[in-house]
Computed example of a mutant assay.
Amino acid sequence: MEDFPIAPVVGWNQPATQEIRDFIVRTVGVSAVRVPLSKGRAFALVDREDWIRLELWRWCWSLLQRGAGYAFRAEYIGRKNSKPRYRWVQMHSMILQVQEGLETDHRSRDSLDNRKLNLRPATRGQNVQNQGLQTTSTTGFKGVCFVKRRGDFAAYIDAGGARKHLGYFPTAPAAAAARDEAALRLHGEFAVLSLAA
C-alpha cells in the first residue's frame, strides 16, 4: 500500500494552525492522508479533499471485536438532568452521506479505509453480506460447518432474511465452492468468497 502522509492532530474545534496550513500546501497533488486517531494508536485513511473538511475535529477510534474499529467523533447535543449529552458521529458516515434507511459499507471490509473509492451505500442486509469469516468458524470457510452425525460438511447462505441450506458435501472446500457460487448469485457485488476466484 502506498505510504500516505500523516495529518497533524488538531484540538477540539480549534482554528487552523500554521502546521495545518503548511500540511495543506505540502499535500497538494496527494490523493489521500492518514488521520491519527486516539493519540496516534491507529490511523484512518481519507481522501485529501475530505480531510480538509474533517480536520476541524479530533477523531477517536472505537475498538470492536477481532481488532476492527471505526473512526468517530463526539458531537454535543445538549443537556439532560444537568449532564452533557453527546452523539457519536462515524467518519465514514460523515464522508459518504447516504439517504435515510441506508448505511455506509466498506468494500474492502477495512473499517479505517474511509476513502470514497472504498465506501458505498448499502442496505443493512447488504452490509451484513459483506462481513468476513466469523472468528467462531471451525472450518475456515464462510457458510460451511461440519455435521458430526453425518460426517459431512454442510453449506448454507443467509439471503433475504432467511438461512438457505445448500446441501451436504464430502469436503469443506467442496461445500465452500457451493456457498461461493450461491453468494455470487444472491449477493452480487457484496458477496464475500471463501475460495480465491
Score class of each variant (00 low, 15 high):
D50L: 09
R66D: 03
D105I: 07
G161P: 07
A154R: 14
G132E: 11
W51T: 05
D113V: 10
V30N: 00
T138E: 12
R41Q: 14
L133S: 06
G161L: 10
K142A: 10
R107G: 00
N81R: 15
V46Y: 10
G143S: 06
A159M: 09
D22I: 01
I95V: 15
R21F: 00
I24Y: 05
F23L: 05
P84C: 04
H92I: 12
P121K: 13
D105V: 09
W51G: 07
D105T: 07
R85T: 14
W61T: 07
A68H: 10
F146M: 07
C145H: 04
I24V: 04
S82H: 14
R48C: 01
L64H: 08
F23K: 10
A68P: 00
Q126N: 12
R163F: 03
Q126T: 08
Q131W: 14
D50S: 05
N127L: 02
E55S: 06
C60H: 10
Q126Y: 14
F23V: 02
V33L: 12
R150H: 01
G40V: 08
R21Q: 12
S82C: 11
V35T: 02
L117E: 13
G125L: 14
K116C: 06
H106P: 14
R107Y: 00
K80H: 15
A155V: 12
H92C: 10
R85A: 03
L54T: 11
W51M: 04
A162V: 07
R79L: 07
R66H: 02
L133Y: 05
N81V: 05
A71Y: 02
R149D: 03
R66A: 03
V46K: 12
R150K: 12
G161A: 08
L117G: 06
F141Y: 15
S111D: 08
V89G: 02
G140N: 06
Y156V: 05
K83L: 00
V89N: 02
S111H: 11
A44H: 06
A162N: 06
D47V: 02
L64D: 06
Q65P: 06
R48L: 00
I77P: 06
I20T: 07
A71I: 13
P36A: 03
S137D: 08
S62G: 04
G69H: 05
L117W: 03
G40H: 04
V128S: 13
W61Y: 15
I52G: 10
A71P: 00
R124A: 13
P84W: 04
H92V: 09
C60V: 04
I24M: 01
W59N: 09
A155P: 05
S31V: 03
M94E: 08
M94L: 14
K39I: 05
L54Q: 10
Q99T: 11
Q134E: 10
L119A: 08
D158K: 15
R149Y: 02
A44W: 02
L64E: 08
K80A: 11
A71H: 05
I157F: 03
F146K: 14
A154G: 10
S62Y: 01
F146W: 08
V28H: 04
R149W: 00
Y70H: 11
G132N: 14
N130P: 09
R150I: 02
V30G: 03
S62D: 06
I77K: 13
G101V: 10
G40M: 03
Y76W: 14
G160S: 13
A162R: 15
E100C: 12
